[in-house]
Design a binder for these strands. Structure first.
Length: 248
DNA sequence: CCCAATAACGACGTTACATCA
DNA sequence: AATGATGTAACGTCGTTATTG
């Protein structure tokens, strides 16, 4: 029942497309204001039939999607399409991709997150979408991936920051204890000044001592027990790569 | 080889709409 | 039923790259 209605709409669209504009180049505005909206408005559940239907429609495959801009070399023209809609007074409407369509696109995104024209057209044909829709979907999908990665990175940096803050707090405390110890011990028992080093960050005398000395060990500040953040390489704190390589 | 014009494409930001709580 | 939040399809713009004359 539903399917029949859907098919009828498709046929109607095809006729409309062919008669009104009479060509593949000029029919964009008619078709775009049309396709999904009518379908969705007519009955929203039909979109999930899109793909399955395409299998069965056989010879009458040329939907309103096909033959708009695809198949033509310069199918870029997203801007002109938009303006065409506007000129026509038809506000853009949103298609909700069916689960099957989304899953299919998702699968192919896993394989390659960019598309060459052939892949784009192939996908569009398989999913009964316009190549432009496939292109847009991949653009948005890449954006989502990046956003998610950014969130993950942000979370990781936050954790790093917390760790460093805690480390810093411990070191300060340690320094205070050492200072207290130093002032409380007699002068002749104090370590030689050469065993004290300067912290490059806070520019204070820290407790870092040469490995051979025992001063740090007595204070419990071996480099293995409480590693200082200073000598850590950047790669340890930023193991992820932020530089997306542009696929050529 | 160099250069300007052009097309194609991706990233990014934004808008508009659908859906859900 | 109304509404704000959220997700996402679609769009506009800009920068980059390849091609062509």
């Amino acid at each position: 029942m539903v399917i029949v209605y859907y098919v009828n709409i498709f046929i109607f669209c095809g006729v409309c497309e062919g008669s009104s504009e009479g060509g593949s180049s000029g029919n964009v505005r008619v078709a775009r204001g049309f396709d999904v909206n009518r379908m969705v408005a007519a009955e929203e559940a039909t979109s999930s039939f899109c793909m399955d239907l395409a299998k069965y429609r056989g010879g009458n495959k040329r939907s309103l999607e096909d033959g708009r801009n695809d198949g033509v070399e310069g199918e870029r023209g997203s801007n002109s399409r938009a303006s065409d809609d506007d000129e026509n007074g038809l506000a853009r409407k949103k298609l909700r991709l069916s689960k099957e369509q989304s899953a299919f696109l998702e699968e192919s995104f896993k394989e390659h997150n960019t598309l060459n024209p052939k892949q784009k057209h192939g996908l569009a044909k398989q999913l009964n979408l316009r190549p432009r829709q496939v292109e847009v979907w991949f653009q948005n999908r890449r954006a989502r991936t990046k956003l998610k990665q950014t969130e993950v990175d942000c979370e990781y940096l936050k954790k790093c920051c917390e760790t460093l803050t805690e480390e810093n707090r411990k070191l300060h405390k340690e320094l205070q204890e050492l200072r207290a110890l130093k002032s409380s011990t007699p002068f002749y028992m104090q370590s030689p000044a050469t065993t004290l080093t300067m912290c490059p960050s806070c520019e204070r005398v820290a407790t870092a001592t040469p490995p051979s000395t025992t001063a740090a060990k007595t204070a419990g500040t071996t480099s293995t027990s409480t590693p200082s953040p200073f000598p850590l390489s950047r790669s340890k704190f930023f193991p992820f790569s932020h530089t997306p390589t542009k696929a050529s």
